[in-house]
Structure formats: C-alpha cells, structure tokens
Design a protein around this nucleic acid. Structure first.
Lengths: 240, 240
DNA sequence: GGGCCGCCTTGATCAAGGTCAAGCCGGATG
DNA sequence: CATCCGGCTTGACCTTGATCAAGGCGGCCC
C-alpha cells in the first residue's frame, strides 16, 4: 500500500506493506525504515558507534529509535555492577516504547548502528489514529514477551554449552535469515562481554565454549568475530 | 463506573473502575472479576485443585481464565524434561492472551484456584469495540514484559540466596500488599519444586536457602508453607 | 496402630562454571 | 620499529550449587 504525501502530512497513513509483514519483528518494529523516514519531517537518520548509549528507554523519553542497521542491546544492572542483557534489537526493530517502562533499563549500541529517530509525540499521535498500526504494535509487544520468556528458559535451565549454541542460532536467524542448507555465515555484532551478559555467564566460559565448538568442527571463527556455522544440525542439537 | 444491563448485552461496556486502577496487574488483568461475571451469560466460575492444567495458552484456545483466587503458574519445558516457570499469575490476573503465543507454554494451577472462564470470542469482541479496555490490555502486556525482563536478571545474575529472597519478596508483595512495617505473613502458594523451577534451582538448594533464612532470623516457617517475614529490611538486602 | 506415600530437609560428594592469573594477538601510537 | 592497550584465550584452582542418598514428618488408608 503506497504512502501519499497527504497521508504523510496527516500522520495517519496506513502502514501495512508486503515488506513489513515479512520482515518486521520486535517490540515496536511496525514501520519499515523507509516509511519512517518519509513519515515526518521531524524524523532524522543518525549513525552511532558501538558503545553509544541511546535515550529512549528512560521515563523522560522524547524519541523512539528505529534500528536500521546493527544491533542494539537492552540491559539491566544490579547495584553492585552485575549486568544482564535482557534483549537484543535487530534491524528493523524499534527501540523505546509507548508508555515507558518504570523499571530502569539501558539501551546501547552493541555494534556500530544506524538508527532512525522519531519524535515521541509524532509516533504516538500516529498510533492513536491508526488501528492497523496499533494492532501491529500489540502483536509486537506480545512477541517480545514470548522472546523474553523463551530466553528465561535458556537462562534458568540450560548449561553453558547450550546457552552459547542457542545464542549462535538466534543471531544466525536474524543476520542470515534467508540461508538454506547446513551452513550460516555472519559477523558477531557484539563483544564476548556482551555475550556473557546476555547468557548469564563470564567471558572466560563463553570463550571456552567457543573453543569447544571450534575443535568439535561445528563452527569456525576468524578475526574473533567472523563466524561460520559449519554444521547447523549439530549446533541445533546442542541447544538443549 | 457502573455496568448497565444494556452495556452487558452490547458487550461494549466501559470497564474502568476505581478498584481496577488500583489492583489490576498482569498480562490481561484488565477486568475486575465481578465485571467479568456480569459480562456475559457465557462466563462461568470454576474451581480447580492445585495441579490442574488449564487450557487457554495453546494455539487452539477457546477461552480466557481470569484468576479470582490462588496462583496460576506458566511454564515451559525442554525436551529432556527440564522445566522453567516463566510467570506467576495472581488474582485478579487474566490467563490466556489475545492472539495466542506460537511457542508452547503450559498454564497450571499452582495452588487451589478459582477462575472465571470467558469464551474467547466474547472477550475479543469486547476488546475490539472498547478503546479503554484495549489501552489497558496494551499496558498490561508491557507490564508483563517488564516483569519477565526483571526476572531475567534474577535468573541470569543472582545467587541462590538472592533468588530465594527475591521470590519471597515478590510473593509477599502480591499476597500481603497492604501490609506496613517490617513483617509480612502469607502462605506459600506453591511447592518447593515449583519454587525451584521458577528460580532455576533444585529443590535441595531452595530448601537449604530457606533453612538459612530461618536460622538467620529473617523468616519463620511453620507447616512447610506458612511464612512470616520477620525482618523485611534484611530480606531486601539479600535480593542483590 | 502400622505402614505407606508425598513432600521436605539434611548430609556427603561431585562437577560446572567462576575466579585469578598469565599470555596472545592485532591495531593504534609514538 | 617498539610499545602499549583492549579484547580474547588458556590454564590452574576454587566455590557454588547439583547430585546422590538417607531420613524426618504428616496425612491417609487399611
């Protein structure tokens, strides 16, 4: 469904389109990046290096960030510094939420990212007027809930080996979604520390598990970040 | 706001009411039990003993269950039998969801419960027509997402002692919400196995942590289930 | 009462994963 | 080139929590 100039100005556009139905997932990943850019003259595209903290998750948000490339990590920290990553947002997910969370959370670029920043008021007005978008946002919230609950099983009941295998599979699914056959190739979008914080492990344990997968011939690693899954079936068997 | 007979029949009633705003939380806990009962002649109130599995979470749901007393546990199980409880629903939460989850989940009575069962079609029609209810459902979904993410920190980064303390605090909050001062009294609505499965531990570890809290003078336990938190401040300090 | 069963506790031992420490590697910098 | 630094790996050792095993306690049934 095409977006007309009039639609854009009224901020009441229909946002269903083929590409959305296929690709979009995540909390609020309901708009294609291109749509978002067209949506409002207040919308800006921004590049951020890895490590940058994003606004948009705290109570006084004034913008939502649509991830256009790279990966954003959401995390929570205990008082003594222990950290847990509670979600990864891949393109084209939208970071930030309608009706902000009351419990503190940080959003940070895990890799270098490009984001598309939309003023809070703009998006919320759009949501209020557009039932299709609203329905899609509800679906996305429920899907994020599902993902969080699935990951709770990983955190609570899987071994270190199973956790690492599960993460590789998750990333492969997002970064190499159309691949067929028994191999997958991608660059890890995050450091060992991030991986450990996502899995509830230490960097040493993560590193040892990578080495084991390597010596078992299931993956190859080059330049610390470039992963090739050589035998997908065997990796899946290790996910518990 | 009162519910009139005409409203009930049109299934387009406003559902905001003082008691709701104050007490309701959880995925879809947007209706007061009394409202729900009045809502439709198809709504039935049912009693279930602990251990009963509820329908309502699988793909072919045909009903939603509003918890009126007791606690319902939501869980996921790995192929080899390892189980993780991924959420607890206290009265007056609503179990089941609009647009069912695709990843398998089980809902089971943790304690003896009373539920109020609403036909799926009835509730969904109501949601479609009632913007206030819809907004509240969205809020509840986001709140459940928050709760899941908070629990991910507990599962991934807390020690056994901190996990048990966190759970006691969580249950106290729900079952003895209006209490003041340094003590809380309640009956555990779940077995040691359920507790272990919620915390990602074994029953032995849970039991040992209870014994330790007891011998440290932070709680007292009688009849295995009756808990008195003697020193709330010290319990909170142990939550990490 | 006696025996059984489910649920919980306690103790002894074990192993998965954490901690501490050393060293590697590649890129940046002088 | 040498050096430094951050991120990663590897090894040695230790701690936490799992596992295995025994026993307690209360309810229930004969």
């Amino acid at each position: 469904m095409d977006i007309t100039r009039r639609d854009i100005h009224s901020l009441d556009i229909p946002v269903l389109c083929k590409s959305c139905d296929v690709r979009h997932k995540g909390m609020c990943g309901a708009l294609a990046p291109e749509e978002l850019l067209q949506l409002s003259r207040q919308t800006r595209q921004i590049e951020q290096p890895a490590g940058t903290e994003l606004v948009g998750e705290s109570t006084d948000v004034d913008a939502y960030d649509n991830v256009m490339s790279g990966v954003v990590k959401l995390s929570k920290t205990l008082e003594d510094g222990r950290q847990q990553i509670i979600g990864l947002q891949f393109a084209p997910d939208l970071v930030g939420r309608l009706y902000a969370s009351e419990s503190p959370m940080t959003a940070e670029a895990a890799s270098d990212i490009t984001i598309c920043r939309v003023p809070k008021a703009t998006l919320e007005r759009l949501v209020e007027r557009n039932p299709v978008l609203r329905k899609r946002l509800m679906d996305q919230a429920l899907r994020e809930l599902d993902e969080a609950r699935d990951w709770m099983v990983t955190l609570g009941r899987k071994t270190a080996a199973e956790k690492v295998a599960s993460l590789l599979l998750l990333i492969a699914t997002h970064l190499d979604p159309d691949a067929r056959g028994e191999t997958r190739v991608f660059d890890l979008p995050m450091s060992r520390l991030d991986i450990a914080d996502y899995l509830g492990l230490t960097i040493e344990t993560v590193s040892r598990q990578f080495s084991r997968l390597k010596s078992d011939g299931i993956i190859t690693i080059t330049a610390n970040r470039h992963i090739e899954i050589v035998n997908l079936a065997r990796l899946k068997k290790r996910c518990g």
